[in-house]
Design a protein around this nucleic acid. Structure first.
Ligand SMILES: [Mn+2]
Ligand SMILES: [Mn+2]
Ligand SMILES: [Zn+2]
Ligand SMILES: [Zn+2]
Lengths: 147, 147
DNA sequence: ATAATTTTGCGATTCATTATCATAATCGAT
DNA sequence: ATCGATTATGATAATGAATCGCAAAATTAT
């Protein structure tokens, strides 16, 4: 049993929830899908593979993943929530290409430290943060100058 | 005439738009209201002052403010867009208290520089960015430890 | 003032997400 | 394995923020 499956089952048993084939299937599909996936995208992916799980259940289950600490929800400003596995994944922030919608992950310990410094200076205790850099990626830049 | 009014009128005339009493009233109310206001909040504020301007017009006009470079839209994760005057206002980022919803503004040139460095390292050109620190503010912290 | 153009308020519409509810599945105790 | 209590599911309706369509009203250049 994968560690992600174990984590989810642990959360399920701790909260008097139930292991269902739907939840297991969604977890498998989620782990197989690309990072930063949309509920709708995951739904379509699974439908194409013959699943008949409803969209509401996809939403419910992605929320469950977030509550269990398996995943986190992101809002990249396109109006749809995106979900990514964060269990056993190092914290990172995002570069978002507004041209091709590619998402590049990065980590920068200096920035993280400075954020803490800013918080401290303001008597603020940080629980979470969001750092997103919007712009144009290298390959889209190249395409643009070529044309 | 205030500089904000001048900027808006300039944008209006450059785009064959029209100066209306609604737009002027919304601008006045917007400049008078607290920063990071919601369309709905601005609508209610104006209604309480006897305005009969419709909500759709508030939305349309706030978008106009953004297009004219007067304001910017923010998304602080509570599902409603917030607008703030940014014309002649120095760039800054935000600390958001999840307890009392207070918003503290800060600027940190070191972080800005590091963001550019990260972008460069990834061949990325930044157009805009979003840095939000979510947590609990000093006064809410104090209240919590007191109880 | 006229006429062309833009704007407005209202209500309808959209879209992502959540709620409702009847039916089905799970699971611990027997 | 069966039962019974509880939770989960799919289909559909509902929600809420934001936008759209349209007829009537307002603005602006002539
Ligand atoms: Mn990521
Ligand atoms: Mn601000
Ligand atoms: Zn790109
Ligand atoms: Zn607070």
């Amino acid at each position: 049993m994968k560690k992600e499956e174990a984590l989810l089952k642990d959360h399920i048993s701790k909260h008097n929830l139930k292991v269902t084939k739907e939840r297991s299937a969604i977890l498998r599909a989620f782990l197989d899908s690309e990072r930063h996936i949309t509920a709708e995208e995951l739904y379509r992916n699974m439908r194409e593979d013959g699943s008949s799980i409803g969209l509401a259940t996809i939403y419910r289950t992605l929320n469950l993943f977030c509550e269990s600490g398996l995943a986190e929800q992101r809002q990249f400003g396109d109006g749809q929530a995106r979900y990514e596995l964060t269990y056993n994944v190092k914290h990172h922030d995002h570069l978002i290409c507004e041209e091709c919608h590619r998402i590049i992950e990065f980590e920068n310990q200096e920035i993280e430290a400075l954020q803490e410094k800013v918080a401290q200076k303001n008597g603020f205790k940080i629980f979470s943060h969001k750092l997103e850099l919007y712009g144009i990626c290298a390959s889209c830049s190249a395409k643009k100058t070529a044309s």
